[in-house]
């Protein structure tokens, strides 16, 4: 595991904090003095996983760098809901340039800071899955291979939610989006497409690659902290459920992320220099239906005649993740 398990304090490391923990064992988010890098008043939907993930990650990076941080942001939900003129929610130095160039903008910032500030100030680039796995992928790969001193964070909500829920290369099979409609003989997104960018990041042999979800705050914070200890290109891929795009209740955002991890749908792991070092094991394994059923984007799989064969294929994908990453082994 990425973080040191702590002694039994009712809730271990599962809750955000706990009054019983010594302060050094509490999460950044538990602190009354946390930075709130992205402040109240932003226009994210109710229960937005991305707003949450962004605050978790950037606050952790702020803590790790003692506030010496600059952020670059891709076009997308996060950008739109956080900085509509005349208000911004960001309390960190922040720039939005374009949809597909965020990794490169961050490279430029890092280069400038290396010259101007001897690298004392660090850079985080952030974008959604569209801005990362699709349109921004060239710049991302370039930043990786040059090993630029940038932590790139992808907030993966598995589609183009800002433009009205269209398919991205991170949209999972069978999911309904506005461009993978739930009609025809094979409703929803097709099988056999899409890409898992963390694995591609690994193939660049960059110093640090990790995945996380908004359901495991401690793990997420530990990964940001670890990432900021390392120089060079780093990639953190955070699953951030989207109530709008997934068709889930606003209050279920964290639960959905938890279910994605506990079913094996989304593997949570950590790798350094191209080698996987640790996984966050499944704690209470569940069948994929538990994850799929609450989501309207999979509603066509259920109903009167459930598509059992499609569900079985999704289960097989989860099982493959479990095998591939050893998600059931003890930490």
């Amino acid at each position: 595991m990425s973080f040191q398990p702590i002694k039994f304090y009712q809730t271990g490391t599962f809750t955000v904090g706990n009054r019983l923990l010594p302060p050094e064992q509490r999460s950044v988010q538990a602190s009354a003095k946390r930075f709130n890098s992205i402040n109240s008043g932003h226009r994210a939907c109710q229960g937005c996983g991305e707003a949450l993930g962004a605050r978790y990650a950037i606050d952790a990076a702020m803590e790790a760098t003692d506030g010496q941080l600059v952020c670059a942001n891709a076009t997308g939900c996060l950008e739109v809901f956080s900085t509509p003129y005349p208000e911004t929610s960001w309390q960190v130095p922040w720039i939005h340039s374009l949809f597909g160039n965020t990794a490169a903008v961050a490279t430029g910032i890092a280069a400038a800071l290396k010259v101007k500030d001897q690298g004392g100030t660090r850079v985080v680039a952030q974008g959604g899955d569209g801005g990362t796995t699709d349109i921004g992928f060239g710049c991302l790969s370039g930043m990786f291979e040059r090993n630029d001193d940038v932590l790139y964070i992808c907030y993966d909500n598995q589609g183009y939610m800002n433009t009205g829920v269209q398919r991205s290369s991170a949209t999972p099979p069978a999911a309904r989006t506005a461009t993978t409609m739930a009609v025809g003989p094979e409703p929803g997104n097709v099988f056999g497409q899409g890409k898992f960018v963390p694995a591609i990041a690994l193939a660049h042999d960059i110093p640090y690659v990790a995945t996380a979800t908004v359901a495991d705050l401690r793990d997420l914070e530990a990964k940001v902290r670890r990432a900021m200890e390392i120089r060079g290109a780093r990639y953190l891929h955070i699953l951030v459920p989207c109530p709008l795009g997934w068709g889930t209740a606003a209050h279920d955002t964290i639960r959905m992320a938890r279910l994605a991890k506990e079913t094996g749908i989304f593997p949570v792991f950590e790798a350094e220099h191209g080698e996987i070092r640790a996984v966050l094991p499944i704690r209470r394994q569940l069948p994929v239906e538990e994850y799929l059923k609450p989501q309207k984007r999979y509603a066509h799989l259920f109903g009167k005649q459930p598509h059992v064969e499609v569900i079985a294929r999704l289960q097989a994908l989860a099982d493959r993740n479990i095998r591939r990453y050893g998600l059931l082994e003890q930490a």
Partner: peptide
Amino acid sequence: FECDNCYGVCPDNAVIK
């Protein structure tokens, strides 16, 4: 029991500790 969960999980920072 002051586990800080509500404080941490609010996407809108709308919980005051």
